[in-house]
Write a protein that binds this DNA or RNA. Structure first.
Lengths: 342, 342
DNA sequence: CTCGGATCTGTGAACGTGCACAGATCCGTA
DNA sequence: TACGGATCTGTGCACGTTCACAGATCCGAG
């Protein structure tokens, strides 16, 4: 009958079908599937042929159920809408993590948490046993996702290091030290009045970059030279620069919290007639696509985003294998890229 | 023994545990879990309490196995590295799709296919029964992922419409019509020598945008005024503009294949001393963050990226419910955003 | 020829859930 | 009281895989 036919057509081949086709038992098929020893050459070739013939593909749900693991790890991006779209690093982090996981034959599954509803569903999903571990990008302090992951004891590694994650594994850059180093470099060009456009102070990265700046200027610190803006954005860079320039017309050096901020600041400086780097030197942070687009090209701190993703993935894989969890968190070097803007 | 204790501590609560705790059977627990009728008020409250007490969370692998569905849909991004990082629309597509799926209580899982190895693993993953349907972003002609999805008969919807997908569902914009409309608008400002920097002609979107341009200029078409470049990028915009300007110094209007291309072209034009829009009018495509960043801000075609994601998600959900698959593909409107650059 | 180990194979149980079915209880009506 | 229907509950099987175990065969050494 046609309904039976339809059902047969739909029905996916199982190990049983392969066994029947090859004239052996399920156990033997399972052994060749998992590359185990103790299977005769005859059986092996018969089974390989049968697999090809019936078009067998293992059912991952059944496999996960019995093995209690899924060979998939989640990459959780917990960002409000706008940031996910604009963050210059996130794409590279994804690619780096994907590359490392791919080499270990793990499937990476990127999970987005945008609304509170997403967070709930995601927490349930993670508890469902379809994910062996997670990489968490840009968690915030007090983040409900962070709590959910802690409750289940999933292997997890954070990219970036919010202050409340305790001894969890993390891979991060040292924002403070990097900010200090590039500010020192800017100071070394002989500037006397170096200011900062400090963005995103509600995030650890933003606060740390400001702290590094303060470290570097040391005794010469002048609060007037720091302008605070909410976001790592081009337009906040413009706004910040206008205010700072009005307050301190004698400024001759700028450390911007991000490349986008620097680009905005540069445009304002140039339309006010300041020459870069002659009148004002400016440096940024990220080494994103903005940096090369500036004229002159921007000197900046290179964020090893691809490597961050890769290192985070490797950390999760180590935890999965039960090797040391290297609790205290790893920090990656951020080379300074010196171009023409300072 | 401590090992037993450890095992107990790890072991996740199951329906059986809940049933034991509540003093009922597995069947009754299952009924309340799935909101079925015919369960007494007493049993219901006892079970709710038991679920909370033992911290029960359903195992999704077991559920998928018996139900033959997973309540998860995959969003496949098949892009070489650089494009994923730079594509201005992809983030918005993700967010739009995620929002729609979230409302239907589906988990979205973004899957990246970068290397050929990724493609293989992804195809196996998709066959594994852990994914009920897929949204495919930026597939290419002859794409192996496209073939893999066709082989399994997973519900699938494409964002964008490669020519070889036959009657599969898709959600796309009309690149040709949009290009025609914005070119007409540019022509209507009184330009006599309107050229195009045509990027990515190996992609459908690139080829269609050129076709729309040709449609619009009609009889006035002059092949010299079209410069072809490989990528939708800022630097290809610069390169293309330099070549075009050298060949046709009298050009007074430019349609660039993308905003990034337009931005590159604008910088070259301005450093050659051409005033925008007085000497040369320029328009782009995408309405990405580049557009507002230009000075003057760029007139461009708005891509409804969020809506594309949402519509694709809804299409997959409809297929899952068995409703009409609306085979021929849907097209979304692209409003023209007129700013100062033309 | 017998024994023991290595090699190969099949069978049953388990993973955690949903569903069909059968059985039990309750209540209103004839 | 007896009956039929509605309501509620428990049990066994199925989903597709892996694994432990037991049984079968082979081969070389004593």
């Amino acid at each position: 009958m046609s309904s039976v036919e339809a059902r047969n057509r739909r029905r996916r081949a199982t190990v049983k079908d392969v066994a029947l086709e090859a004239g052996v038992s399920r156990g033997t098929v399972s052994r060749v599937l998992n590359g185990q020893p103790y299977v005769s050459e005859d059986a092996r070739t018969a089974i390989d042929a049968a697999i090809a013939k019936v078009g067998f593909i293992p059912n991952r749900a059944a496999r996960s159920l019995v093995l209690q693991r899924s060979q998939a790890i989640g990459l959780i991006v917990h960002e409000p809408h706008s940031l996910f779209v604009e963050d210059p690093n996130i794409g590279s982090i994804l690619m780096g993590a994907n590359a490392a996981l791919s080499e270990a034959d793990y499937q990476m599954s990127t999970l987005i948490a945008d609304t509170p509803r997403d967070v709930d569903r995601l927490a349930r999903y993670l508890s469902g046993g379809l994910i062996d571990g997670v990489i968490i990008v840009s968690a915030r302090v007090g983040d409900p996702i962070t709590e959910a992951v802690a409750r289940l004891d999933l292997p997890a590694t954070f990219v970036g290091r919010p202050r409340d994650i305790g001894s969890a594994a993390s891979v991060a850059i040292d924002n403070r030290d990097s900010a200090r180093r590039i500010t020192n470099r800017l100071l070394a060009t002989g500037r006397r009045r170096v200011g900062m456009i400090a963005a995103a102070l509600d995030r650890d990265s933003g606060a740390d970059r400001l702290a590094g700046f303060v470290d570097a200027v040391g005794g010469r610190f002048d609060a007037e030279l720091v302008e605070r803006v909410p976001l790592y954005s081009y337009s906040d860079g413009q706004r910040g620069m206008r205010t700072l320039l009005a307050r301190c017309p004698d400024v001759d050096g700028i450390f911007a919290s991000s490349d986008a901020v620097a680009a905005g600041a540069m445009d304002v400086l140039q339309s006010e007639g300041r020459r870069i780097p002659d009148d004002v030197g400016i440096v940024g942070f990220d080494d994103s696509s903005w940096a090369m687009r500036c004229d002159p090209p921007l000197s900046t701190v290179h964020q090893p985003a691809t490597e961050l993703g890769r290192a985070a993935a490797e950390s999760v894989l180590r935890q999965l294998r039960g090797v040391s969890d290297e609790s205290e968190g790893r920090q990656l070097e951020c080379p300074i890229v010196w171009r023409g803007s300072a």
